[in-house]
C-alpha cells in the first residue's frame, strides 16, 4: 500500500517522481519544474485543493419538537461509512451552551469541526467574563453565517444542523442545511426523517393543538415513536439513540436508549426475508 496520504486518489507519474518522494510537505519553492506542469498541480503546496463533494462518514436523521416549556431532540448513535454501520457509539447531540443543544446529520467530520468552532466561540464568551454570553438565537445566526459562507466558497460543510434551545422564556427550534438555508418550525426532522418522521411530528402537533398542549412526557413518547419508525424503514439508522431536553432549567442529554420492536410479522410477508 502507498502510505503517503497525499498520493491517495492521485495518478502516479513515474517520469516525474520515480522514487515517490514527492509530494512530501514543505516543498514550497522547490517544486520540480516538471511537476508544476501536471494539470491541477498549480497550488503552492504542490496539490490541488479539494472541496467536499460528498459526505464520507455520515449520521442519519435528527428530530426535534417543541413542547410546553422547552424543546426535545433525538438522534441515534450511528455513524455510517456508506452502507457500513461503522461507528456505533457516536453522540450527535451536543450541548453548546447552558440552554442550547446542537444536533447534526450528515458528514461527521464536518460536524466535529463545527462543534469545535462553536465551542471556541463559547470559550471566548466565557473568558470575557462580563455577564454576556451567546444565547440560542445568537448561536443560530453564527452557525448560519458559517454554513452560508462555506457554501458561497463552493466548499460546503456537508450537514444539516438542528439547533434547539430556550431563550427569554421561549423555546427555539431551527435547522440549517449545507446551502445555508435557515428555517425555524415547531417540529423539525432532517434527512430521511423529513419524509418519515416529520409527518408524524406535524400530525401530533396538529391533533394536540400546538406545542403548548404537549407535555415533556408526551414529547418523549412522540420522539420514541418516530425513532421506531425510522429504525424500521431507514437502513442507515440504529436502535440506539439519545434524547436531549432543553427547558428553562437547562439541558439534559439522556443515556443511549432503544425502543421495543417487533419483527415477527416479517416472516409472513412474501418476498421479505427467507
Amino acid at each position: 500500500m502507498d502510505h503517503f496520504p497525499t498520493n491517495w486518489g492521485n495518478p502516479r507519474s513515474e517520469d516525474v517522481d520515480s522514487y515517490n518522494t514527492y509530494p512530501i510537505s514543505s516543498h514550497i519553492g522547490k517544486v520540480p519544474h516538471s511537476v508544476t506542469q501536471i494539470a491541477g498541480y498549480g497550488h503552492t503546496t504542490g496539490h490541488p485543493t479539494s472541496h467536499t463533494l460528498q459526505p464520507v462518514v455520515t449520521g442519519t436523521s435528527v428530530l426535534g419538537i417543541k413542547f410546553k416549556g422547552g424543546v426535545m431532540m433525538a438522534a441515534d448513535n450511528l455513524a455510517s461509512y456508506g452502507s457500513l454501520a461503522r461507528f456505533r457509539d457516536v453522540e450527535r447531540l451536543h450541548q453548546v451552551a447552558d440552554f442550547t443543544v446542537l444536533g447534526a446529520s450528515g458528514d461527521i467530520s464536518d460536524y466535529q469541526y463545527v462543534k469545535h468552532l462553536i465551542d471556541s466561540q463559547m470559550i471566548k464568551e466565557y473568558n470575557a467574563d462580563d455577564g454576556h454570553t451567546l444565547a440560542t438565537p445568537n448561536i443560530y445566526e453564527y452557525l448560519w453565517r458559517v454554513m452560508y459562507n462555506r457554501r458561497s466558497k463552493m466548499n460546503p460543510l456537508w450537514n444539516t444542523f438542528v439547533l434547539g434551545g430556550v431563550h427569554q422564556g421561549k423555546s427555539f427550534l431551527g435547522a440549517i442545511d449545507l446551502k445555508g438555508t435557515p428555517y425555524q418550525a415547531p417540529s423539525i426532522a432532517t434527512g430521511f426523517g423529513s419524509h418519515l418522521a416529520q409527518p408524524i411530528l406535524r400530525k401530533e402537533l396538529e391533533t394536540r393543538g400546538g406545542e403548548d398542549n404537549i407535555t415533556e412526557e408526551q414529547a418523549v413518547e412522540i420522539l420514541k415513536k418516530s425513532m421506531k419508525v425510522l429504525w424500521y424503514r431507514d437502513a442507515r439508522s440504529m436502535n440506539k439513540f439519545q434524547l436531549a431536553k432543553i427547558t428553562a432549567e437547562g439541558v439534559t442529554i439522556s443515556e443511549p436508549m432503544s425502543v421495543e420492536t417487533e419483527w415477527a410479522f416479517a416472516e409472513k410477508i412474501r418476498g421479505y426475508g427467507a
Binding site: H132, Y140, R145
Partner: peptide
C-alpha cells in the same frame, strides 16, 4: 451580522 446580537457596551 455575525451573531444577530447588539454589541454589549462593555465589549
Amino acid at each position: 451580522m455575525m451573531y444577530d446580537r447588539p454589541m454589549p457596551g462593555s465589549r
